[in-house]
Amino acid sequence: MSGYEARWEEHNAERRTRILRAAIELIEEGPADADVSVRDVAQRAGLAKSVVYRQFGNKDELERRVRSLTFEDLAGVLDERLDLADGSLREILTRTIAAVADWMLDHPRLNEFVRRGPTFESDGSLDAVSQFKHRMMVQAEGIIGALAAALNADDASFRSVPFAVVTMIEATLSAWIRGAAPTRSRAEIISDLADYAWYVLDGAARAAGIEVRPDVPFTAMIAELTGSLTPG
């Protein structure tokens, strides 16, 4: 790629980001079921509508890209919160659930928007929330995989745990945000869900003959469990 082509691509990338951020701003400012037009997005971005269509072929592509950007922003936060090298299992669970709850509270209209359709990467079979839950499940599998590998254990007892836990957390928080769940404060709902997630994980671990302590740093706990299996 020549220098000119590289600069042109950078210019287009900046415009695409500017357009997407403008669309997100309009979604967050309007009613939950508002239809944000391409004209509105162009005006907010300070560009002609034709420029928007040059960057995004149609409104459907623009909306898919908005969901993709939103998904990646939130997924990036969760990747950081699910850092297994930082904290105990209880701390990891609590801060991850807190991040999801805070995002839903801070971005209610955007949360509803991403539920209404797929991202750009999807073939349409999964909406953005389903993709997000899948991303969380993959991360949760990292916790389980680390435990199973450290103990050379069969992970069969754990295989359905990520799906059960992630589905419970997402569905409960969604109902709580809408006021359809029992009345709880932010701190209470996060604490409740962290406890429930821990109970499920602990039950699966015990079924596999593993005792997992929730308040010991995760890496230290793995080291202890591994050491307990080392011949003396």
Rank of each mutant, 00 (worst) to 15 (best):
M1R: 12
M1E: 10
S2L: 07
A6K: 14
E10M: 12
E10Q: 14
T17S: 15
R18F: 01
R18L: 15
I19T: 02
L20P: 04
R21C: 01
A22F: 03
A23N: 09
I24K: 01
L26W: 05
I27N: 05
G30I: 09
G30N: 15
P31K: 10
A32D: 15
A34Q: 02
D35E: 10
D35H: 08
S37P: 01
V38C: 01
R39Q: 09
D40L: 05
G46T: 10
G46E: 10
L47I: 13
S50N: 13
R54F: 09
Q55Y: 02
F56P: 00
K59G: 04
E61H: 15
E61Y: 13
L62S: 10
L62V: 12
R65S: 14
V66I: 13
L69N: 05
T70H: 04
F71K: 00
F71T: 00
A75K: 05
G76I: 12
G76R: 01
L78Q: 12
D86S: 09
S88I: 06
S88K: 12
L89M: 12
R90S: 13
E91P: 07
L93P: 08
I97P: 00
D102A: 04
D106K: 04
H107W: 05
R109M: 05
L110M: 11
N111T: 02
F113L: 04
G117Y: 08
T119N: 11
T119R: 15
F120V: 12
E121G: 05
E121V: 03
D123C: 13
L126S: 07
L126W: 13
A128V: 10
Q131A: 04
F132V: 04
K133I: 10
H134W: 06
H134Y: 02
R135Y: 02
M136R: 10
A140G: 12
G142K: 14
I144K: 02
L147K: 01
A149C: 01
A149I: 05
D154G: 07
D155G: 05
A156Y: 13
S157G: 01
F158C: 00
F158W: 06
S160G: 14
V161H: 09
P162K: 07
P162V: 04
A164L: 14
A164H: 03
A164S: 11
V165T: 04
I169H: 03
A171P: 00
T172L: 12
T172A: 15
S174K: 15
R178T: 08
G179P: 06
A180Q: 15
A181M: 02
T183K: 06
T183W: 02
R184E: 09
S185H: 09
E188S: 00
S191V: 06
S191N: 05
S191K: 00
D195V: 01
Y196S: 10
W198E: 08
W198I: 08
Y199P: 00
L201A: 04
L201M: 05
D202L: 03
G203P: 01
G203I: 11
A208F: 01
I210C: 05
R213K: 15
V216M: 05
P217L: 12
F218V: 03
F218P: 09
I222A: 12
T226D: 14
T226A: 11
G227W: 15
S228L: 15
T230N: 11
T230H: 14
